[in-house]
Simulated scan of single mutants.
Amino acid sequence: MSDLLPAVAFAGEALIDLIRREDGAYAPCLGGSVYNQARALARQGLRSHYLNPLSADAFGRALADQLAADGVQAADPQPRLAPSALAVVDPGTGGGPPRYAFYREGVADRDTRAEALIAACARLPGLALVACGGLALDPRDAGLYLPWLDAQRAAGRQVALDVNMRPQVMPDLPAYRAQALAALARADLAKVSDEDLQHLGLPGDTPLAQAARLFEQAPALRLLALTLGPEGACLLDRGGLIARWREPRALQVADTVGAGDCFFAGLIAQALRLGLIGPAGLRLPQAEEGLALLRHAVAAASLCVQQRGCVPPSWAATCAWRDGA
């Protein structure tokens, strides 16, 4: 791990993905969008902290063991008696997005408070960026994550948000949209997919037009990564498009589980290594730097989709794939 670069703390879900196999059976895999991102950033050689608690059950122990193996520091190491959350995953076909059903009532990763997250961050040396998203945008958890984000901004830290919406499992879609936009209003850096923009109900004939409208609703937002599935990704600031990149090689896609998480972590890792994020805040990239960000993030996602489940690549493997394109 690089102790010279700023640290990143992640808050959000950790769960077990039960992924349907071709034979119809379900294989358990460690998952949860934010949990995946914390692991993926550590595998990119950065200091990564995971803030939420884990269960004392067998799944929770496996989640904790994997964090330790990847070099992620658990900020709340006390196991909870509550069970681990579950997600039943249909990986989809033809490289399409997976479909999820979540079981998250009374689970360990939600057994925390905003005050605990704030206190944990205050103890972390060199913390310059906090990240969340995914199921942390559940409006039922608004009292947990929004006060934590406000406290991090007040402490001078940057906020990164991966929207990663799951509207099919949220009972109140308008409240879910409002919560996602409230979190985006606190973000300096964000990632959205073209599907996320549709779920947010933003006007515009194209994803780029919708992304431009998102800046209007997120006053703190300065840098936005827009993923477009097999069409690659774009990087934008308030002035418009900075860079665009897509994977130039044909891939043997096993499934797309965790691809967006690896993209997000790869984006943050490259931004930290380029010095775009630090104690002085977020520096907007020039066109060449923006392209470097996207090339690395897309490479991380490309390596992920060629394996079953979320298997984040190392920094060295990502650079080798990226530079071989």
Rank of each mutant, 00 (worst) to 15 (best):
V72G: 02
L146Y: 08
A254F: 00
D162N: 04
Y176C: 06
A297V: 05
R21L: 06
D162C: 00
S193Q: 04
Q270T: 13
T112W: 08
A25F: 12
L129T: 08
A269Y: 14
V130M: 03
A142D: 12
D65N: 14
W245L: 08
P79D: 00
L294E: 09
R249G: 04
R104H: 10
G31I: 02
A211C: 09
L200E: 12
W148A: 03
C29R: 15
L4G: 15
Q198I: 15
L117Y: 04
L129N: 07
H199K: 04
R123I: 00
V159Q: 10
N52K: 02
P248F: 02
G201A: 01
A142Y: 13
A316S: 13
N36L: 01
R140S: 14
A211L: 07
L303A: 09
A7L: 00
T93M: 13
G201H: 07
L235K: 07
P53N: 02
Q73H: 06
L274E: 14
E13M: 04
A259I: 05
D23N: 13
C304D: 07
Y145N: 05
A225E: 07
E195P: 14
D70L: 00
P230L: 09
A316M: 03
A101M: 07
V311W: 08
L267E: 11
G239A: 11
F215Q: 04
A155E: 08
L241E: 03
D17H: 01
T112H: 00
I277C: 13
F102V: 00
L30Q: 13
D76I: 00
G229F: 08
R21T: 08
D76A: 07
G232T: 01
P313W: 00
G204I: 12
Y145F: 15
V305N: 03
D70S: 01
V159D: 10
T227E: 06
A58D: 13
L15T: 04
D196R: 11
A225L: 08
L224D: 09
W148N: 08
L137S: 11
G290H: 11
D150H: 12
A87F: 02
R283L: 10
A178F: 12
H49T: 10
